[in-house]
Write a protein that binds this DNA or RNA. Sequence first.
DNA 1: CCACTAAATGAATGCCATTCATTTATGAGA
DNA 2: TCTCATAAATGAATGGCATTCATTTAGTGG
Lengths: 232, 232
Amino acid sequence: MPASPAAPGSTALGEPRSEAGRRRAGRPVGGVLDKAGITAAALELIEKKGYVGLTMAALARSLNVAPSALYNHMESKRDVLLLVEDHLAALVDVSAFGSEPWEEAVRKWAWSYRDVFSRHTPLIPVIAVLPVTDAPQTLAMYETVSVGFRDAGIPEERIVSSIVALESFIFGSAYDVTAPADIFDSGSMAEATPSFTGAVRSLAAQGHERPADVAFSLGLEALIAGLGALRE
Amino acid sequence: MPASPAAPGSTALGEPRSEAGRRRAGRPVGGVLDKAGITAAALELIEKKGYVGLTMAALARSLNVAPSALYNHMESKRDVLLLVEDHLAALVDVSAFGSEPWEEAVRKWAWSYRDVFSRHTPLIPVIAVLPVTDAPQTLAMYETVSVGFRDAGIPEERIVSSIVALESFIFGSAYDVTAPADIFDSGSMAEATPSFTGAVRSLAAQGHERPADVAFSLGLEALIAGLGALRE
DNA sequence: CCACTAAATGAATGCCATTCATTTATGAGA
DNA sequence: TCTCATAAATGAATGGCATTCATTTAGTGG
């Protein structure tokens, strides 16, 4: 017989019932507070402590709950990451599709997409392999983008490949944003790599504030031009 | 007084001395067996058990050594990953630079780069933020590519940004290769996302063996064309 | 009022990277 | 040949982690 449990009123989860349970018992709807609450707590934790601080124990603590309680609502930590990912997908700006020329819409989408995930790079390995079924907001983003591509005249068989190509570039570029400024400092090997060292110096001499932005712009414009050329 | 140690002859490390120690004592050179041995063992472990199986304990075991012994040679597990990364960089095919037209050289380099790292995606977050000083083989690759870009007439200030743009695309694409085949199956949300679902079906109808290759080719050719257009 | 069940609990479990005081073994110099 | 310095190996911690499980709590429909 374990020790007496915490006061029941002290728990904060608003809608602590599984889908199945809710359906069977016909509860007062909701369904939001549960996943929404976990997502909000996870996001706050990530903001304050970063992804290193996002542990099941810390998450439970910030929800005033025992770690094991989380497993009544999620199968694993991966599910928490999925929740966060899907929330972020809704922050990506797809508004220009339908209201602006395709090139401009892609540009805004891509910059926004990269900016959102550059602050959440630990999610990238998760997203990249994530079946879209598990992430409704992400799927909604794909739908909007897809309509935009179709309306712009991209042949239907190429739409998915084009999106994937852009997304791959975006994910890779999100990492760049977080790279240290001196990442290309060749140090003691400088004499052995004159061409590369010269190129690094030459870029540095331009004095760009965010070198990652230059590379991103360069690649993005090339992709937009190249993919746009395939329109009918 | 701890128990008696293992028989000394049973350890396998060939050159167990730090740089400093070797320098000071003027040992018979070598220096290879240490890092090379660890790298080889790590690679074998990764091949057999994947990155989940690459633990310090497992690595030590495959070297017939106690886990703590590894810390006489490496600061942390990250150093092991670095060693592996740098070894892989040497496998990337840069041979076409200097012997073939720029476009073709970039193509071969990019495909080879993607293929190598698609089997080592857990390293991508490490590489993306890795100061090149710590990875001589990686730096050597950059040098070769850089010379190729310069000889092709890419303006010096743009060389690094062009390489970064390509690399970002390559890293992102490496993840794609590992994605499950049904990643874009919209499942029960299909009716809600007609355009995307149609695009997915349309791509599937083409019957490509490896859809990731289609997207990679599409993006890569766009990048080559776009970056190539900036040559002087 | 009872039976059912979702949800919460805390105490494991097992894995992990990393640290540390201690011991072993080897080469250099006397 | 002996001695000393030191690199390297050892095993026993440490602390953190995700996850599991038997048990208890509390709310709902009958």
